[in-house]
């Protein structure tokens, strides 16, 4: 009987180098030729981002008129989450060299060299492809079409094309993150109506002030990685003013679902208060100038609140729908 032996260090490193799709990536040499841990694959899916994706998709699904079998609803959310995870893995595969230059992303599996680039790419393709296929076969082909487009939009349009080329990257690329509630809604109704489009528009409008609040305080990181984020390309003043404009537009947009009769007052009043606070927190960010060592507190506060904002806003949307269905409110 022949014993199966583990490949040695030279063999594994030779495979990794030969298989690398990004010639310019200088991955740190591994001291031990270990196979990637399953946690490394899990980290490729950007679990923190996935939480928001799952939540907004679930809210879109629960707020949609009509009903869906729990098993099919679970499958739809699972497909959206896994497709987002696959898109995240493809994003990390493509940006391994950029991630290695930024403090915030240096600890990811590819810059650390704990996973082979080809493994990350194949894992991303497998997750995305399988999710779209299962969504189509088990849930709805229109939802599957939007899911496939959202992955394409995030990976190709945003990651590969826009992000390294234009400071408007996050504005247009933000659309990728706005798809989950739209897809969740379509999974139930099988059609695109004004309400899911409005939910899409709300996240689209929310993304620039949310992301630029972060970009303002990690500006040196993006500069080091040569990514033309708005604060680096157009300057702080312009970024701050634009954030203010987007926040001001978000307020009327967020209450539109209520104004057109798509939701009840619970959502409408919640949206008004939440967007009012969002705007109030953006005003100091929009009007001030940062100085060295000031801690960027208003920006950090806005970033933290922006995440809470989306959770509570979409939570209110579902609560409104559930109470209306139960006959508690009109």
């Amino acid at each position: 009987m022949t014993a199966i032996t583990a490949p040695n260090a030279e063999e594994i490193d030779a495979i990794a180098v030969a298989a690398s799709p990004v010639d310019s990536v200088a991955l740190p040499a591994r001291s031990t030729p270990m196979p990637a841990d399953w946690r490394d694959f899990f980290a490729l899916t950007k679990p923190k981002v996935m939480r928001l994706v799952v939540f907004t998709a679930l809210c879109g699904l629960l707020a949609a008129p009509g009903s869906i079998h729990p098993v099919i609803g679970f499958t739809a959310i699972l497909c959206i989450a896994l497709a987002a995870g696959g898109a995240g893995a493809l994003n990390m595969w493509w940006e391994a060299d950029i991630d290695a230059k930024m403090k915030r992303t240096q600890g990811r599996p590819l810059p650390r060299g704990t996973i082979k680039p080809t493994d990350a790419r194949d894992f991303g393709l497998l997750l995305s492809g399988m999710s779209v296929m299962v969504m189509g076969l088990a849930v709805h082909w229109l939802a599957a079409g939007f899911l496939a487009f959202s992955v394409f939009f995030y990976v190709v349009i945003y990651t590969m094309w826009l992000k390294p080329r234009t400071p408007q990257n996050i504005v247009i690329g933000g659309a990728a993150g706005a798809f989950p509630p739209l897809i969740g809604w379509i999974a139930v109704t099988g059609e695109v109506t004004w309400m899911p489009v409005l939910l899409f528009a709300i996240i689209f409008m929310w993304t620039p002030p949310h992301f630029w609040a972060l970009a303002l305080w990690v500006k040196p990181d993006y500069a080091a990685a040569n990514i033309p984020m708005m604060p680096n390309a157009a300057g702080e003043v312009s970024t701050r003013r634009q954030s203010l404009v987007y926040s001001a537009l978000l307020l009327p947009l967020s209450i539109t679902p209520w104004l057109i009769g798509g939701t009840g007052a619970i959502y409408g009043i919640s949206a008004l208060i939440l967007s009012g606070i969002f705007l109030a927190l953006t005003v100091p960010v929009g009007l001030r100038r940062s100085v060295d060592g000031d801690g960027m507190k208003p920006e950090k506060k806005l970033f933290a609140y922006s995440i809470l904002y989306l959770f509570v806003l979409f939570g209110a949307l579902v609560l409104d729908r559930v109470l209306a269905q139960a006959g508690v409110i009109a």
Partner: peptide, 17 residues
């Protein structure tokens, strides 16, 4: 590969499986 490294290698393989 040292015995410790081989043990870790097998542990990761098993966990992935």
């Amino acid at each position: 590969m040292t015995p410790e490294e081989e043990q870790e290698y097998r542990r990761r393989q098993k966990a992935r499986n």
